[in-house]
Computed example of a mutant assay.
Amino acid sequence: MRFDVYSPLVLSLLLSAVGPLTARRVAPALAARVLASAAVLTAAATTWSLFLLAAALVGHAPPVIREARADGHPVTDPVPGAIGLAACLALAAIAVRVYRAVRAEARTRRALRLLCAAHPEGTELIVAACEVPRAFAIPGRPGRILVTSGMLSVLGPAERRVLLAHERAHLTHRHGPLLTAATLAAAADPLLAPVRRAVGFLVERWADEQAAATVGDRRTAARALARAALTAGRDHTACALHFTDRAVTRRIAALQTSPPPRLWPAAAAVLLLGALPALLAADATDDLLRLLSGVLD
């Protein structure tokens, strides 16, 4: 209990350090899934560990201490009262952060889907008459691709195929829920913010690779991304899967080289790193239950 309950916080820092390295060296599809899964497990373990620290305050309640001493039970102090109180405050902050993240995601999805409300449900591609170059994948059932006329006007026929293949890859491989999971994990555990950014970059790289495979030309995919990035502004809609989002220069450079290897051992190590906090939190839970049962029995 004394050490296990704090380990998820330390392992969050380690995962945040490993995440960007994994994003650069492991194939995007595999790395995105592994990092998102590890982030969710670590965030859940961290939140549960804070709950355990807060629950340890039960042992400090005066009626409990008096009853334990009257029955001759030793009164242990696994967690200082100040740390337990800090854990309560941290849990309240987590609740606020997660609520805000969920609300932001819902607001963005609602705004994007309102743009598509006038079109038939079976319509996948929606072209908006707007001079501002934009392209979005809008997750949902069904998923939609929203492209402005300004974006289509700056791309050639082959580059338009790249654009549509990229956005279609977001929908096909359900990148929206994957990114949402990483976003909520970072909201619950702010130490995982670098992992959230890495997952956001990886889903774009994943879609880039799918688009390059669809058109059969990596250079054309890189050229389409470069041209779209030069004409698109930086005022992107939050939480949306935008074609020119997230480290465009790195994505263009990656498309001009061969695809990265899968590196299953590295991916497995990251997944194990994400599972370890959950195991240690479970052990801390067992320790706390034994301590409290010894006091309350």
Score class of each variant (00 low, 15 high):
13 L>K: 02
17 A>H: 02
22 T>K: 03
24 R>M: 14
26 V>P: 04
27 A>D: 09
31 A>I: 12
33 R>N: 10
33 R>H: 10
34 V>A: 08
34 V>M: 08
35 L>K: 09
42 T>R: 05
44 A>E: 01
47 T>Y: 06
48 W>S: 07
49 S>R: 02
51 F>T: 13
51 F>A: 15
52 L>P: 01
52 L>D: 01
60 H>P: 03
60 H>N: 04
60 H>M: 09
61 A>W: 13
63 P>T: 03
63 P>S: 02
64 V>Y: 02
64 V>W: 05
67 E>C: 04
68 A>V: 13
73 H>I: 05
74 P>R: 12
77 D>Q: 04
84 G>A: 06
84 G>L: 09
85 L>I: 14
87 A>Q: 02
89 L>P: 01
91 L>G: 05
91 L>W: 07
93 A>K: 03
95 A>Y: 04
101 A>P: 01
102 V>C: 09
104 A>T: 10
105 E>D: 05
105 E>P: 00
108 T>R: 11
108 T>C: 13
109 R>W: 08
112 L>N: 11
113 R>F: 14
114 L>F: 04
115 L>W: 00
115 L>S: 02
120 P>E: 06
121 E>A: 15
121 E>G: 06
123 T>A: 07
124 E>H: 10
125 L>H: 01
125 L>Y: 01
126 I>L: 12
127 V>I: 15
128 A>S: 05
131 E>Y: 00
132 V>Q: 14
140 G>A: 13
140 G>H: 14
141 R>I: 12
141 R>A: 14
142 P>H: 09
142 P>G: 08
143 G>A: 13
143 G>S: 12
146 L>T: 11
154 V>M: 07
154 V>S: 02
155 L>P: 03
156 G>T: 11
156 G>R: 12
161 R>H: 10
162 V>W: 07
162 V>K: 11
167 E>P: 06
170 H>K: 07
174 R>P: 05
178 L>A: 02
181 A>W: 09
185 A>P: 01
186 A>Y: 08
189 D>F: 06
191 L>I: 06
193 A>Y: 00
194 P>I: 11
194 P>D: 04
195 V>A: 05
198 A>E: 06
201 F>D: 08
204 E>P: 04
205 R>S: 15
208 D>R: 04
209 E>P: 04
213 A>C: 05
215 V>G: 13
215 V>R: 13
219 R>P: 00
221 A>S: 11
222 A>G: 06
235 D>A: 12
237 T>G: 10
238 A>D: 01
240 A>T: 14
240 A>I: 13
241 L>Y: 01
246 R>I: 10
247 A>S: 05
248 V>I: 14
257 T>N: 12
257 T>E: 14
260 P>I: 09
261 P>N: 03
264 W>A: 14
268 A>G: 05
268 A>P: 01
270 V>L: 05
277 P>F: 07
278 A>R: 02
280 L>T: 06
283 D>H: 03
286 D>V: 11
289 L>N: 00
291 L>D: 10
296 L>F: 11
296 L>D: 03
